[in-house]
Design a binder for these strands. Structure first.
Length: 466
RNA sequence: GGUGCCAUCGCCAAGUGGUAAGGCCGCAGCCUGCAAAGCUGCUAUCCCCAGUUCAAAUCUGGGUGGCACCUCCA
């Protein structure tokens, strides 16, 4: 297994701290709004990573956090006149539901900020004790960036003098403009938590460091975790600051490998509220099967920026359709999975920093080759068995082809329409038997008007949503 | 301004030194009552210039164009 380390900027052979075991932490969502395609992309990428690691024989402990303390949550609660918990519960539930539609497995651990406050207190106290953090007169606690000689080495940034001049207006209490809040005192009687540093709220960055420390670290770990993941925008400042906190509060660096997924743009533009709601996952799921979105969002390498575009989605869907059509051809066969040469090749290419494009090419070639043999006369018992094993493996490692193939092709049609189509197909078959092709073609036109296409096969007539 | 990434067929997209994967679209054919699906065949020398090398899409330098981050952000 090889992974591109976005800190060292090179592809590295993956070696976990403990043989056979992998600890993975990914920055999850702040639950103040519906998930958008970017959240989906990130969750999808690390879902794939976990599957590939497991296929390589690793036992993975995967944590993805929920940030449920945040100014934006408080703002939303005030706007909607609801409690913080109502807001965070609502969006957390929605997030879980939508991720499930995408075929994303649940993380093993899903820590919440509200449930990790003690771990944050401990970490902040250690930083204060080590003189890496200081308390200001108004009760805030800041990380002292000047005290950390390795600060900015994660994101390879240089301390920019110009930067300081531009941002002088922000918080005069800080020793250095680069210092970031570990604890913000809140006196307005609103949302605050009691802490050894006074009542207030934790800074964003400390949450992740604390959760990792709480859930993963054992006494002898050379790193807190093996792999830390998240969106590309998180490298700085979020991950830089996380790494600084952990490094200065404990005796170990935060992570051995860092992985960052690329961004999702819509029609060439950065996602923003002004573009309307088209980027929300819930809206995309109304129009497309979750697995179509999974396939499309995963079809480009995880490190590249992804340009979401409906035309591309449609051509990508046609590629997924091929998997399901092959599955249809083998429908009803008893599955007896065995690891084929194809499975080995697929795993090999995915183990090279998740090379999904090569993996998809392998799948397409496998499909064409299987169809070709199946088209010729003969029972092909061995080939069918092998192909079924291949499809099973694709489903397991990539999560493609997990549904009933007939239901997959019927996405979005209601029961009345399905019944009407079935009725018309019987009528058309009768007309065909009577060689009344004019009538059968008229009926077909009527069926096509439902937005479906028809396929006459030796096993009967089937239809698919187009 | 600082730092970094990218540029491969009409579209999407692999390939990081050995002579261009795959999908969509298109064209031709097989199959089909006709279709659809499936199959077969056909379609690029890799932004530009210079260099290194027996050999470069792949390395180096320069140029052009696009993008990201710079303390809210998956």
């Amino acid at each position: 297994m090889h992974i591109f380390d976005s800190v060292q900027k090179t592809k590295r052979k993956f070696t976990p701290m403990v043989e056979g075991k992998v600890s993975l932490y990914v920055c999850g969502p702040t639950v103040y709004d519906d998930a958008h395609l970017g959240h989906a992309k990130s969750a999808l990428v690390f879902d794939l990573l976990v599957r590939v690691l497991e296929a390589n024989g690793y036992s993975v402990i995967y944590a993805r956090n929920i940030t449920d303390i945040d100014d934006k949550i408080i703002k939303k609660a005030q706007e909607q006149n609801r409690t913080i918990k109502e807001i965070t519960d609502f969006y957390t539930t929605a997030y879980h539901r939508e991720m499930a539609f995408l075929g994303i497995k649940k993380p093993d651990i899903e820590p919440k900020a509200t449930e990790s406050l003690n771990a944050m207190f401990e970490l902040i106290q250690k930083l204060i004790d080590n003189k890496h953090a200081y308390k200001t007169e108004d009760g805030d606690v800041y990380f002292d960036t000047a005290s950390d000689s390795k600060y900015l080495t994660l994101s390879n940034r240089v301390q920019d003098e110009g930067d300081k001049f531009q941002r002088v207006e922000s918080s005069s209490m800080k020793k250095n403009s680069a210092d970031f809040a570990l604890w913000k005192s809140v006196n307005d009687g609103g949302v605050s938590f009691n802490s050894p540093f006074g009542s207030g709220r934790p800074g964003w960055h400390i949450e992740c460091s604390a959760m990792i420390e709480k859930h993963f670290v054992t006494v002898s770990s050379p790193y807190a975790i093996d792999i830390h993941g998240g969106g590309a925008d998180l490298l700085f400042p979020h991950h830089e600051n996380e790494a600084a906190q952990t490094r200065c509060a404990t005796s170990h660096p935060l992570a051995n490998y860092w992985m960052h997924n690329g961004f999702v743009n819509i029609d060439g533009e950065k996602m923003s509220k002004s573009l309307g709601n088209s980027f929300f996952l819930k809206d995309a799921l109304k129009a497309y099967d979750g697995e179509v979105l999974r396939f499309y969002l995963l079809s480009t390498h995880y490190r590249s920026n992804f340009n979401f575009n409906e035309d591309d989605l449609l051509s990508s869907k046609k590629r997924l359709d091929r998997i399901y059509r092959l599955k249809k051809r083998l429908f009803g066969l008893a599955n007896a999975y065995e690891r084929t040469a194809f499975c080995e090749k697929l795993l090999d290419t995915l183990s090279d920093d998740l090379n999904i494009s090569s993996a998809l090419a392998l799948i397409d070639e496998m499909i064409s080759s299987a169809n070709e043999t199946l088209d010729t006369a003969g029972k092909h018992k061995e080939l069918k068995k092998e192909t079924l094993s291949n499809l099973t493996y694709i489903e397991k490692i990539l999560g493609f082809g997990a549904k009933n193939p007939f239901e997959y092709f019927q996405f979005g049609l209601n029961e009345d329409a399905k019944a009407k189509i079935a009725e018309l197909i019987i009528k058309r078959d009768e007309a065909k038997k009577a060689k009344d092709f004019a009538l059968s073609d008229t009926i077909r036109d009527e069926i096509l008007s439902f937005g479906v296409s028809l396929m006459d096969t030796p096993n009967g007539t089937f239809w698919e949503r187009t």
